[in-house]
Design a protein around this nucleic acid. Structure first.
Lengths: 149, 149
DNA sequence: TATGAAACTATACAGTA
DNA sequence: TACTGTATAGTTTCATA
């Protein structure tokens, strides 16, 4: 993992469809050397994959919500995680420090879907309390993947 | 934007290096029809790009922090956004509803870098108050891009 | 939307430092 | 061990129907 690997990774984050010839020109190595390095980065797991970055609105998911939840007492975190991980509207979920247990990111069709999600959490007895924040606009946005298309 | 487009997008989110032949087989269309659809999805902006998904730890950024900030009075939001957007540790930043103004996601080398970021925000007079949450583990994680490698 | 030819790209390999 | 250049295999692209 040296400067050249970082340059290659930077190229591929910007556009993973760049040809080896173009990347070679940018980093100053032959195409085969660049190819070797990319393969090694993938083998080591430094590059996890090459994925499409979608526009959520184009796929009918214009609403981005952040949800903080405090789990109900006696809930199995294992079961909660499995449930959450299986829901297609969940695009991120992190176990976090502080007054809340989990931070969940949702990509939704509309506010009705948000209400439905919150109802599901309450009805399932998973949570003690929650707080919801809606994204009004993005200043910096990472690649978007959507589940359940 | 029909079922086939959604299937194609799903394939490309999973692995954008799948050949047209493989995608064709999965969606039941010829390779050129699939190619046409992919190009149109890109032209329309439904597919924003094809990017590498990185392991942040492999690139020396093991710490994931979420930061909520309330801006100081009289601050130009325009200037704040420009400043934030230019900082490489910021991997997401959203203008949000509720008691906080912005939710910022940071990928950091360590806790020292978190402290430095908070100090910068305070010293710059940007914020009135803030709250930080650290991610302990990810249940669901979207693709990761890193800036400033 | 499908077919097939042409252009391009990635990959494997042999050789070199 | 890391790199280069070349030959091959594979993929995308494009013209045509």
């Amino acid at each position: 993992m040296d400067t050249i690997d970082r340059k290659i990774a930077t190229c591929l984050m910007g556009d993973a469809r760049l040809s080896l010839a173009e990347i070679s020109a940018r980093v100053g190595l032959s195409t085969s050397a660049v190819n070797d390095r990319i393969q090694k980065l993938r083998q080591r797991g430094a590059i996890r994959g090459i994925r499409a970055d979608l526009d959520p609105a184009a796929f009918g998911r214009p609403v981005l919500a952040f949800l903080f939840v405090a789990l109900a007492r006696g809930i199995s975190e294992e079961a909660f995680r499995a449930d959450i991980a299986g829901r297609p509207e969940v695009t991120a979920c992190h176990h976090v420090t502080g007054g809340w247990n989990y931070l969940i990111q949702l990509r939704l069709e509309g506010l009705e879907a948000l209400e439905a999600f919150l109802s599901m959490l309450k009805a399932g007895g998973w949570i003690e309390r929650s707080e919801t924040m809606l994204s009004l606009s993005a200043v910096v946005e990472p690649p978007v993947i959507l589940r359940g298309l």
